[in-house]
Design a protein around this nucleic acid. Sequence first.
DNA 1: GGCGAAGTGGAGGATGTCGTCCACTTACGG
DNA 2: CCGTAAGTGGACGACATCCTCCACTTCGCC
Lengths: 230, 230
Amino acid sequence: MPDQTSHKPPEHTAGGPPADPNLRADARRNRERVLEAARETFAAQGVDAPMSAVARRAGVGVATLYRRFPTRSALVTAAFTEQLSLCASALDEALADPDPGHGLYTLLEKVCTTLVTDRGFETVLMARFPEALDYDKERARAEEGLARLVRRAREAGQLREDFDPADIALLLLAVTGLAGQPRETALAASRRLLTYLFQAFRPPPPGRPAPLPPAPPMGLGEVHRPTGRP
Amino acid sequence: MPDQTSHKPPEHTAGGPPADPNLRADARRNRERVLEAARETFAAQGVDAPMSAVARRAGVGVATLYRRFPTRSALVTAAFTEQLSLCASALDEALADPDPGHGLYTLLEKVCTTLVTDRGFETVLMARFPEALDYDKERARAEEGLARLVRRAREAGQLREDFDPADIALLLLAVTGLAGQPRETALAASRRLLTYLFQAFRPPPPGRPAPLPPAPPMGLGEVHRPTGRP
DNA sequence: GGCGAAGTGGAGGATGTCGTCCACTTACGG
DNA sequence: CCGTAAGTGGACGACATCCTCCACTTCGCC
């Protein structure tokens, strides 16, 4: 055989869904249980929930949790990776849609639903955990794809001339504000807000000039992170 | 002199700006310093900032703080009373405006600016501290006034038929989502979002039916409070 | 001035979370 | 089977925050 000294490609990536395939069976099982517990706990109590709560819910000792996910960021990141890649493929679908306006709307509806349903996800999507290193690449890709989608929709006359890609971030941030409500309420609110905004995003009828104030300087990756204690 | 026995009208209201008039001079001074420190600290670190941080910033011992404001709610509540009553008078002005649409817009712009500028204020405005008892009456009044304003604006043809008072709460909640951004960004974002939404709130041109999904069941006082730890 | 009550600051016990360490258990290749 | 290394749970020390208690200081009236 060509080689042997355990010279595995160095952990090819961090935080991702690839549950190390050379993990003992029970360990891998536990890892999954922890991730699920994390999602549930975060949804119920927010991303600041005590680690021990996650461990308890998973039926696992804290040590296990800390061994698999040394920091809270790692846990949060890993817990929402699935949702993240779901968003990524939703973006691909949107780009493939022949009707860019429809594609954009569908995409945002999906993302907003996730935002409002899986509480804590905004923390990851909105770059609040910079430690999620490989997300940077992912995010750049997303940002670029979004910009393309927006440009196309605008050229197709489905978005007003003064629409700015930052308005997407604006919308996502706004939806985030609804996330505290009980699930059904939040869903209804999110749908309604989205509908309102999309109507406002369309080119205005010729009669109404309706100028906008300038777009805020926000990109998906540039949203401000809440200050830790100084 | 005509009278003396300190028979001041009994504390005409609670929780408000009327710093107990029969408080020793230095005590009253300290109370103000604490309130200002609280506003600053909350703005910088959020309403969960340690009480000791507030005390330190005010240049006071913790005991002083706790004597004046026995609970965190009391402090938060008191700290934002001024903003609250500012909002109340803004509502009165709006109701007095002969153009209900303009009044509503101006009102919301003021409130949103406050929301985005004084971080932590949403906590009070959005009923996150139920202990603020007298707010209940205040809130009921606000809710009623808002409903009236909305009705008038709708009757004047300045709001679409399917506009719902809950959409105001929706808007405020959405703006809350922007509050984490740095001040200037948040302000720009808030203005832009408001403009978008107000355009969507106008009656649609006859050509476009543009139905809305149902309004979420939210009143100003019914926003869900974040779960404490169970 | 001087005295009493109101006011004050900081120490300190209670509580809760973090993250590590280590003696025990379990999977799984031989 | 059985040995061993991977895996595990919970106890534990460090640390932050809460809030109370009490000896000392200051205000303001006589």
